[in-house]
């Protein structure tokens, strides 16, 4: 009897019943449409972000018009707002970050792909990538308490002295060493974009076919010549994509900059002076903004930031995408 039962029990499982078929069809449909609507939600979110920001900034944009972009004045008392100083600060800090960050990142990438002993490679890559994981507020507090006093005491006086008499550069490095300011924010940003640019650059450097590099070495090229004439031309699209990705980060970075920028709504000639960026203005002032126009002006700044970073990031992604397609072919 026992034997019969054990043979008989699996029988229903083997034959597909109509109800099981219905159940599977139902589950298939649920999963397919469920996942599809989740995917579309991602798309709608971005649309929602843009729509909300446009709606929120409408009041300020209709009040100030295009003059909003070209006015330096930012006066909460008389309710006159212009975005020129934050735009200037955002662009200038990012420029400094890129000037310092790009050579160092590419240097690290060259080190990792050409010079590093294989045993250390993974450890160093991981360490550099951990830099990307450190929250931006940590860079902020470190910048405020460690970097800014150091720059104020040791670096900025030297810069002021060195460029004192020089016609154009003198103005750029003029004024008392505040410690905090545009220059310090640029340095912090350059540290923050380092891991992003490095990891993309290293990845694209590794796509260079070894035969190409070996041929160049065999012809007598030095390591630098291989990098300059083989690796960089081969990977230029990817490297620029990585740089744009880092730039996108630098432009939108908030907390680290807020700590060290000084939050002054004015355009000083000197890069050592305090300034402000779009994101720092929003972070510092949003909860204090009491009138509708003030809030709306800050949201306009947010919209502006989003459009700038969107463009930069879109260009970066398109370049990296093109590279992937080339690699696929």
């Amino acid at each position: 009897m026992n034997q019969v039962a054990s043979v008989a029990t699996p029988a229903p499982a083997n034959s597909i019943t109509a109800s099981a078929l219905r159940r599977h069809t139902l589950w298939d449909a649920v999963l397919k449409h469920g996942t599809r609507s989740a995917a579309i939600t991602v798309l709608l979110l971005l649309g929602g972000v843009i729509a909300t920001l446009v709606q929120g900034s409408w009041l300020s944009l209709s009040t100030f018009g295009p003059g909003f972009l070209t006015t330096e004045k930012w006066n909460p008392v008389s309710e006159e707002f212009g975005a020129l100083a934050p735009i200037y600060g955002t662009l200038l800090t990012s420029l400094i970050a890129m000037l310092i960050g790009i050579p160092i990142s590419i240097g690290i990438a060259i080190f990792l792909t050409e010079l590093c002993p294989p045993r250390l490679k993974r450890a160093i890559s991981t360490a550099i990538e951990l830099l990307a994981g450190i929250p931006s507020i940590i860079y902020g507090i470190w910048g405020l308490f460690v970097l800014a006093p150091f720059l104020q005491a040791h670096v900025q006086p030297l810069m002021i002295e060195a460029f004192a008499g020089v016609p154009l550069l003198g103005g750029l490095f003029a004024g008392p060493p505040y410690g905090i300011g545009i220059f310090t924010a640029g340095i912090i940003l350059s540290i923050m974009v380092l891991p992003y640019i490095t990891s993309v650059t290293r990845d694209v450097f590794e796509t260079v076919p070894p035969t190409l590099k070996e041929s160049a070495y065999a012809l007598g090229c030095t390591t630098w010549e291989v990098v300059r004439k083989i690796v960089l031309p081969f990977t230029s699209t990817g490297v620029i994509g990585g740089i744009m990705l880092g730039l996108g980060r630098a432009l939108g970075e908030t907390m680290a900059v807020t700590f060290v920028i000084g939050n002054a709504h004015k355009i000083a000639g000197s890069i050592l002076a305090p300034g402000t960026t779009i994101s720092a203005s929003i972070a510092n002032e949003f909860t204090e903004a009491e009138t509708a126009l003030y809030t709306s002006s800050l949201i306009s700044l947010g919209l502006l930031l989003f459009l700038i970073t969107f463009t930069v990031l879109a260009i970066a992604r398109l370049m990296l995408l093109r590279l992937q397609r080339q690699a696929g072919k």
Partner: peptide, 18 residues
Amino acid sequence: DILLSAPSIVIGLFVYEV
């Protein structure tokens, strides 16, 4: 990919408004 690297402060503004 854009949302991945979009400035988080903008996300904050969005949620504030909504």
